[in-house]
């Protein structure tokens, strides 16, 4: 029997959510950017795997911020390139 660790439960790991297609569309419009201009996150990132993010998904990361209290960031899931 194995108990899998949920990384999101750790205090140091911020909340990750997979965004819906509509949300992503709104995001791209809000910043008037293309998909490519989003910051990236690897598909095998522990938190991405936990929430079931797939390559091409956009992840919303909700962080505790020293300056702003709560800060949101958005990252595009990409394949980790081989060395």
């Amino acid at each position: 029997m194995s108990i899998k660790l949920n990384v999101l439960d750790h205090v140091m790991v911020p909340d990750h959510q997979v965004m819906s297609a509509d949300e992503v569309q709104a995001l791209l419009e809000r910043y008037s950017i293309t998909f490519e201009q989003l910051p990236k996150i690897y598909h095998d990132d522990a938190a991405v795997k936990q929430i079931g993010g797939k390559v091409g998904d956009v992840i919303r990361v909700i962080r505790q911020s020293q300056t702003a209290g709560i800060a949101e960031a958005y990252r595009l899931v990409i394949r980790r390139p081989k060395k």
Partner: peptide
């Protein structure tokens, strides 16, 4: 390409 969504958050 975006580095921060809001300067210094």
């Amino acid at each position: 390409r975006i580095i921060q969504y809001h300067y210094g958050e």
